Simulated scan of single mutants.
Amino acid sequence: MAIEIKNETEQSADLYLSGSIIDDDMGGIIDEWCDNSTGYQWPEKIRSQLEGLKGKALTIYINSDGGSVPAGVAMANMIARHDAPTTAIVDGWCCSIATQIFCAADRRQMPANAYLMIHKPAVYASGNADDLRRSADVLDTIQRGLEETYQKAALEGVTAEILHKLVNDETWLTAREAAEVFDVELLEASQMTACAGSAKFMQHIPECVRRMMEENLPQEQPTDEAAEESCPKAAMEMRQRAEIALALAKGAMI
């Protein structure tokens, strides 16, 4: 599973949150039909994990390229509501909507070789001119909400205008740079493997990150036949639903 609990004691636990963020309906299909859901995470999955961790201090390790805005915001709110102290640590990179989860924790930490990326939400839209204008208005509203969360985690003196420009420019931040904008503690560098599921939807990936991603790609990619064997009851439906969900997750909802 993409969300794992480790090192649980009576007082604390580590929560590992890695992979692309998707909505509950897509997550339900993966859970029901597929043997392996590694690489995806959704609100219901983290809700059920948090249910058993009430009262325990959490260290949340994040390595995610982002995904669905509604799902990511829901997960961030769950972390914010947790009834014990929370610390979020970027394991590799924390991109797009995953940064909302990072900012929702009480404390934020980053190794020197980790990355943060914030950018504008986007949408796949169709319809007449009025429909498209409404889509743009909705995206502006979503962006204002995201920026309010960033503002709460920002250092004193970092204005709403500064954050707005960083979001508009699709800004990549090293840990040191992130600590100049947000309330982030710097940690020693650690071995980093970034989650690269939706990298093709990012426009300004630093070259050092791109090289690292290429080095960590598996040598052999699974075939369509292998995918169908792992999900024999719903291979076609999964592909169709995945296309729709990913269009939303990487478009309207990142």
Rank of each mutant, 00 (worst) to 15 (best):
A57T: 15
A57F: 12
L58M: 07
L58D: 02
L58E: 08
I60A: 03
I60E: 02
I60S: 05
I60P: 04
I60D: 04
I60W: 08
Y61T: 00
I62V: 14
N63M: 07
S64R: 07
S64E: 04
D65W: 00
D65V: 03
G66I: 04
G66S: 11
G66P: 09
G67E: 05
G67W: 03
G67D: 06
S68Y: 08
V69P: 02
P70R: 04
A71C: 13
A71K: 10
G72P: 13
G72M: 01
G72H: 01
V73G: 05
V73Q: 13
V73F: 13
A74I: 00
A76N: 10
N77F: 10
N77M: 15
N77A: 13
I79N: 06
A80W: 08
A80C: 09
A80E: 14
R81P: 01
H82M: 00
H82R: 02
D83G: 11
D83M: 02
A84S: 12
P85Y: 06
P85I: 02
T86R: 07
T87N: 15
T87V: 15
T87I: 13
A88H: 11
A88C: 12
A88R: 07
I89T: 07
I89E: 01
V90D: 14
D91V: 05
G92Q: 01
G92R: 03
G92N: 04
W93L: 14
W93D: 03
C94T: 09
C94I: 02
C95K: 00
S96Q: 07
S96E: 15
I97D: 09
I97C: 14
A98P: 00
T99E: 03
